[in-house]
Write a protein that binds this DNA or RNA. Structure first.
Lengths: 157, 157
DNA sequence: CCTTGACCTCAAGTGAAGTTGAGCAATTAC
DNA sequence: GTAATTGCTCAACTTCACTTGAGGTCAAGG
């Protein structure tokens, strides 16, 4: 058999293969393992063996990271995936929804920020403690000082 | 002696006052100074004395940081403010526009990301290195490791 | 079989963005 | 006028997200 031998059914792969498929550095993948983001098996030589579903797992990590989540946030989200079996679409959809809802919020906040920059920063209100954007309500301080308020840190709840 | 003593014309203030007005920690303000983001005068006792316009300056730092800019990016932007005089509205508007343009991009990108997340994450495309979600053209990555900050705070729990 | 490249572990380093602490000086409040 | 508060410098420590290097092992091709 010549040519095409793309890994036994390409069901399992080495760390290098996974790195190629995800665009991550090998060192990053090992690092993620220490953070509990992936937990590969080992072959009898002690080398890591990954499943194809780990590609998606790490891709999710990358996406979520770009959305601003910390590795710990992501770890927590991934922890809700089934441990015994390969996650299904439904599994993924479920955890994606959590992140997506958050995104809506973030988009709204960024839009507000843009408006702020365009219309407000030159107006002087930045120097005023009571600027609705910088400091919407008295008492917001305890949730995060200063301009954090701009982002819509809700003090409610 | 009791009552109203709201700072001599509140034109100049101590680092503690500035910290109160911006919500920043005193240590952070000093740190920003080492990064060239503020350059206060000193009184004859050697203590830092800030102008009211520094409130705006630091507020801008906070806002820009939350947009994902590094302190170095911000330093560069602030460097275009006039050094001899207190910045005018126009000065601020000018530098804000630069950041704002960037923001439009980001909002667009995030909106795209949200759409993908809703419709795509379960579909398998996440396993592809080229998925726009994983690898957006000019991804947030180029804004540095602070991309996290762009997006604000943590996943609601 | 033997070489070469991929992998292994573990420790240390990086850089961003600060915080904390020691030891001391200046300001403010009473 | 004195005590408490605030400020000063400088060095070291912290967290996050990785990378790099040393020293050694495993596995696939020729």
């Amino acid at each position: 058999m010549p040519a095409a031998m793309p890994k036994a059914a390409n069901q399992i792969m080495s760390i290098g293969d996974l790195a190629d498929r995800t665009g991550l550095a090998v060192s990053a993948i090992r690092f993620y393992e220490t953070k509990g983001l992936v937990t590969p098996e080992r072959n009898r030589g002690g080398q890591r063996r990954y499943l194809r579903s780990d590609i998606r797992r790490l891709s999710f990590v990358q996406v979520a990271q770009q959305l601003g989540f910390s590795l710990e946030d992501i770890r927590a989200a991934l922890a809700s995936l089934p441990s015994g079996r390969t996650p299904t679409q439904k599994d993924w959809e479920k955890i994606s929804r959590g992140f997506g809802a958050n995104l809506d919020d973030r988009i709204a906040r960024m839009t507000r920020l843009r408006d702020y920059l365009e219309g407000c920063i030159g107006c002087g209100c930045l120097s005023m403690k009571k600027c609705a954007l910088v400091n919407p309500e008295d008492g917001l301080k305890k949730f995060g000082p200063g301009a954090r308020a701009v982002l819509g840190d809700k003090l409610a709840r």
